[in-house]
């Protein structure tokens, strides 16, 4: 068990560092006499975040929901596509290059097109999050399904296993660690996708996502709002990453017994 001293070190040091950063931030602003629309003081940011907390929380929830929908869809669709790739070499050879396209195309180029086709609002944001987060799932799941140890495949063949037995008793369980890795990457990308998606397909009006708050803060020089939204976005990304990590680690430890 870790000693109290070790725990204190791990927990208090980041907090101390955080306070130090706030201090330096405040001092820089005061000494440099930086105008508030360039660098608001931490206090101003805190105050704006507090007074607008319901809007900010609503934005986190909305963006988070779009990211979650995109992520969930990419898990399901990505795994199904990986299945089809592992079944048929022809399907894999013909479609995998287009999956790579998903990775390389800049989302800022596709997003306006999505808005033209599907309109503004949640569905487009979730779709953009889905497109951006799909590729890591496809690659990782495909690798996991096909990269099975040759001796094990031989073992299954030796005992006259049929295709389904090899798939469900060998390939799918063997792919789980790869899928967990893919999910880690993919979840983070889904958050990015949702925020960037909101730049283009954002809501305005009654409900706002974090992306909209960022764009609005930039365009209207509401820099403290911008800061608050950026910090909230970071927090959302970290929270999503932490949850996926914990779930992944639990799956690997409890079910996979790595």
């Amino acid at each position: 068990m870790k000693s109290v001293r070790e725990i204190a070190l791990v927990v208090l040091s980041p907090i101390a560092f955080f306070l130090l950063v706030i201090l330096v931030w405040q001092l820089t602003k005061q000494i440099g006499q930086i105008p508030p629309y360039v660098l608001p003081s931490p206090i101003a940011v805190g105050r704006t975040a507090w007074t607008g907390r319901s809007v900010l929380c609503g934005a986190v929830a909305l963006t988070g929901a779009a990211a979650l929908c995109g992520f969930a869809a990419s898990l399901i669709v990505g795994t199904l596509i990986a299945f089809s790739f592992s079944f048929s070499r022809f399907v894999k050879a013909s479609c995998y290059p287009y999956a790579i396209f998903l990775q390389t195309v800049p989302i800022v180029a596709i997003a306006p097109l999505i808005v033209v086709w599907f309109g503004y609002g949640f569905q487009s944001v979730a779709l953009i999050a889905f497109i951006i987060s799909l590729f890591p799932i496809i690659t990782n799941a495909t690798t996991g399904l096909t990269n099975v140890d040759r001796d094990l495949v031989d073992l299954f063949e030796l005992h006259n296993a049929n295709r389904w037995q090899v798939l469900f008793k060998l390939r799918v369980p063997a792919a789980v660690p790869y899928l967990v890795t893919g999910a880690r990457v993919s979840s983070g990308m889904a958050v990015i996708g949702a925020i960037v998606g909101e730049f283009f397909a954002g809501y305005g009006g009654v409900r706002s996502g974090l992306g909209f708050l960022i764009v609005d803060g930039t365009n209207n020089l509401k820099t403290d709002q911008l800061f608050a939204a950026v910090i909230a976005s970071t927090a959302l990304g970290m929270a999503v990453f932490a949850v996926v990590n914990i779930v992944g680690a639990t799956v690997l430890a409890r079910w996979y017994h790595a």
């Binding site: 140890d149 001796d151 094990l152 031989d154 073992l155 299954f156 030796l158 005992h159 006259n160 296993a161 037995q165 008793k169 060998l170 369980p173 789980v176 079910w255 996979y256 017994h257 790595a258």
Partner: peptide, 25 residues
């Protein structure tokens, strides 16, 4: 066939690993 490495399935316990050939049949 017994391989150079044990090649056990890590997600199965000893009993279920031994049972594998029976399951496949």
């Amino acid at each position: 066939l017994v391989f150079q490495e044990p090649r056990l399935l890590p997600w199965r316990n000893v009993t279920r690993n031994i049972a594998l050939p029976l399951e496949l049949s």
